[in-house]
Simulated assay, not measured.
Amino acid sequence: MRRKVGIIGLGMIGERILADFMAHPEFEVSACWDLSPEVSQQIERSYPGAPLVADATAVMQHKDIDLVYIATPPVTHIEYGLQVVELNKALLMDKPLSISLEDSRKLVEAAESKGIANAMNFAYGAGPLVDALEKALQANEIGALQSMEVRYQFPSWPLPNQLSAASWITNRNTCGMVREMFSHYVYLTHRLLGNLEVISVVLSYPDDEDAAEDFILASLKCGDMPLWLMGGLGSPHTPRTSDWTINGSKGSLRIGEGYQLLQAQGDGWGEYQVDNSRTAVEVRLDQLADMLDGKPHKLPSLRDGLEVQEVIEDLLNFG
C-alpha cells in the first residue's frame, strides 16, 4: 500500500522532494501547497496533476495523508509542526528545525509525548555514502582519528538555485549560510562520532544590520578530536566548493562536492568505492517508508535536529 504524503512549501527543496516522492513506488502525494501563487503556477505547469490545495491547513487536515513534509522557511516550521503533531500525523521536517531553540524544544517534546513518527531531512540522513563512511570508520581504515575539517566557499549568497528563497535565506534572523550549510555536516559528525562542543568563533557580517554572516572561522571539539570550520563568500569568480574531511593516523576520507566519498591517495584524492545501486534519495525514502510502518530505520529524528540546532546557535551566538 502506498503511503500518502502532503507537502507544505514547494520552493527549491519542496519541489525537489515533490518530484522524489512522485517517482518512488512506496509514496503518493495527496496534497501540496505553497504560499506563492507564482510557485504554485510553476508547479502546475511542471507537474500536471499535482494535487495543489488552497492552504496549509488543507494539506494537514487531508483525511488520507499519513505524513506531512514541511519545506517552508524555518521561522514557520514550529507553527506548522505543532499542528501536524496535534493531528496525529507523521512529520518530516526540513532543516534547520527552527530559529528558536525554545520553540524547537516544544515541538520535540510534543512529538515525543504523543509518540508521533518524525524525521529530519538532512542530506546525510541516510544513503550509500553515509553507510560506506560509517563502515570505513568502524573498520579502522584510516587508523586513530586525529582531526576533522569543514570548508565551504561560494561566489555569491544566495546561490543561483536559491534565488527564490533570497528574502529569508540571506537574513541573519531567518537563516544564513551557517544554518543552511553547516547543519548537514554537524548532523553527520554527530551521527558518526558524537556531540560537538564550540571552542571559539570568528564571524563576519555585511554592513546591513539584517544580513546574515558572510564568513565564519570556528574551532570545535568532538570528544578530544578538533574540528575546524571555515566558510564564507569569495569573489564572484570563486568556484563553489564544500567538503567535510576526517583525518586519521593511516589516512583521510573526504566528502567532496557532488556527494562523493574520496580517500587520500599520495598527493591527491581518489574515489572511494561506494555501492550506488540505489541513490541517497531512494534510500532515504525507503527508510521513511520503514518509519511509517513502525520498522527500524536510520533517519535522523526531530531530537537529532534539535541537537544540531543547539550547535549551530552556539556558533552564531558565541561569546
Score class of each variant (00 low, 15 high):
M60T: 10
D66G: 09
D103K: 12
D103W: 02
D94L: 00
E38R: 12
L87D: 02
K63D: 12
E79D: 15
D66I: 01
Y69I: 04
S30P: 00
R105T: 08
I65K: 07
P48A: 04
V85S: 05
E102P: 01
A90G: 04
V53P: 07
P37W: 10
L67R: 13
P74N: 01
L107Y: 00
E44C: 10
D34N: 15
D34F: 09
E38H: 04
V39D: 03
M60R: 10
A90Y: 00
M93C: 15
K95R: 15
Q42N: 11
P37M: 01
K63S: 12
V59A: 05
V59Q: 03
S46D: 14
V53F: 08
K95Y: 13
S40A: 14
S30A: 13
K89T: 14
P96W: 00
D55H: 15
P96N: 06
D34S: 15
V75H: 15
L101C: 01
I78C: 13
P48L: 06
K95M: 03
D66P: 00
V68L: 02
L87H: 05
W33S: 00
K106V: 07
V108I: 06
R45P: 11
N88G: 13
L67W: 12
D66T: 11
M93I: 14
D94A: 13
P73W: 04
K95L: 12
T76Y: 15
L97T: 04
L107S: 00
V39N: 11
G49C: 14
I78R: 06
E86Q: 15
A56T: 06
V53E: 07
L67S: 12
S104R: 01
H62Q: 09
A54G: 07
V39G: 07
S98E: 09
A54M: 05
E79F: 14
K89L: 09
L67F: 10
Q41V: 03
G81F: 07
K89Y: 12
E44D: 13
A58F: 03
V75Y: 15
S46Q: 14
P96C: 04
P74S: 13
L92E: 11
K63M: 02
P73F: 08
D94H: 11
R105V: 02
S98D: 07
A50H: 06
P37G: 09
I43R: 01
D55F: 11
P74R: 04
K95E: 02
R105K: 13
L52A: 01
E38A: 15
V39Y: 12
L52I: 10
W33T: 08
I78W: 10
A71N: 14
L97A: 04
W33H: 11
T57K: 10
R45L: 08
S36W: 03
K95G: 10
K63Q: 14
I65F: 02
S98M: 05
D34W: 13
